[in-house]
């Protein structure tokens, strides 16, 4: 079964061709980082404007790379939410047109579920239950997965997402956007133990997260320093901030795995590309006997490949756009 997928939930315009729920034949991602860099974060209106300009090109490029045509597709998959309404609606509207033009049924997919299942689908060695950690610019959550489609959210951020904190700290430090890779690059030269930043809710028995206090602590630290801040000191601040984020994420994840008796842990979302976080997760999982399944980097960022592979499992829900149009849902709930 061939599936053409589109993902436009935020600021990446992505199209992919997938086969049978595990094989990604092409996965084209057009980043908008250069558009949003000036503003230190994603500007929803500008994101939507870019999506509409290039969506046709991106979809055709994905088909070309897969040596396929629209007529070869059995299902269309599109991100229905959560995400920015102006961005979601471009992908959905485009796919409705394609659905009608070629008579191909389409299905709406949850973006977060796509991240969560990306490294698992087609992996014969995965045994449920699995504990999933999602860390991105818009979401931070812990999910108990009993199978595809059977999830329980056991923790989430109560304020900022971890990726959002990275972007804001990068803006405070004048590093630019996207903040994650820039903070991480600077942090490589710093001492992660130089400053003891707060680990939000780490002592709480819940599995919820909080990063706004950490972000504010960095702001006050920057204010308290004599300016201009020497390069090494900036690197220490970045490394200490990164360490605080990783510490909170890794410790809570392992604690949740222990409490729920789960032996396999997975992680997804853009922040999972962070080398410090990956290393910490790998070491701690190894030390405590957990199996860790991490996605390859391209599946960490927002991409249509994860939407297309997951859509295979929801193929029975696919309908023609003329019979049942899909509505964008910016706050689409993660099914618990």
């Amino acid at each position: 079964m061939n599936i053409l997928a589109i993902e436009t939930s935020c600021d990446e315009t992505s199209a992919a061709v997938c086969r049978d729920g595990y094989e990604i034949l092409s996965n084209v991602i057009a980043s908008q980082d250069d558009i949003h860099a000036h503003y230190g974060g994603v500007v929803p209106e500008l994101a939507a404007r870019r999506h509409i300009e290039i969506i046709g090109q991106v979809a055709n490029k994905a088909l070309e790379q897969a040596s396929a045509g629209f007529e070869d597709m059995d299902i269309l998959a599109v991100t229905q939410g959560p995400g920015l309404i102006g961005s979601l609606i471009v992908g959905i509207s485009y796919m409705q047109g394609v659905s009608y033009r070629y008579g191909i049924p389409m299905v709406g997919i949850n973006h977060i579920e796509g991240h969560l299942t990306a490294p698992l689908l087609g992996n014969q060695q995965v045994c449920y239950p699995v504990l999933g950690l999602i860390v991105s610019g818009g979401h931070t959550m812990l999910v108990k997965m009993d199978d595809v489609g059977k999830y329980t959210v056991i923790g989430r951020t109560l304020d900022d997402a971890a990726g959002e904190a990275f972007d804001k700290v990068a803006t405070m430090m004048g590093l630019g956007y996207p903040g994650g890779p820039l903070v991480s690059k600077l942090a490589q030269k710093g001492d992660p133990n130089a400053i003891r930043f707060p680990r939000g809710l780490l002592r709480s028995q819940s599995f919820d997260f909080s990063f706004s206090g950490l972000k504010t602590a960095v702001l006050y630290k920057l204010k308290s320093e004599s300016h201009p801040i020497p390069e090494q000191r900036q690197a220490d601040i970045a490394a200490s901030f990164e360490e605080a984020v990783a510490d909170a994420l890794v410790k809570k994840t392992l604690r949740a795995a222990k409490q729920y008796g789960i032996k396999t842990i997975t992680a997804g979302g853009g922040v999972i590309r962070n080398a410090r976080l990956r290393t910490r997760l790998e070491k701690q999982c190894c030390k405590h006997g957990y199996r860790l399944v991490l996605p390859e980097p391209i599946l960490c960022t927002d991409n249509a490949g994860m939407i297309g592979t997951l859509a295979y499992y929801y193929r029975d829900r696919a309908m023609l756009a003329k019979d049942n149009a899909i509505d964008p849902i910016p706050s689409l709930k993660f099914v618990g």
Partner: peptide
């Protein structure tokens, strides 16, 4: 309407995807 404009154009592009 920004959204309305983009809906129409995106659907037109989808109908003319090939």
């Amino acid at each position: 309407s920004f959204t309305g404009i983009r809906v129409g154009i995106a659907i037109a592009k989808g109908l003319n995807c090939d």
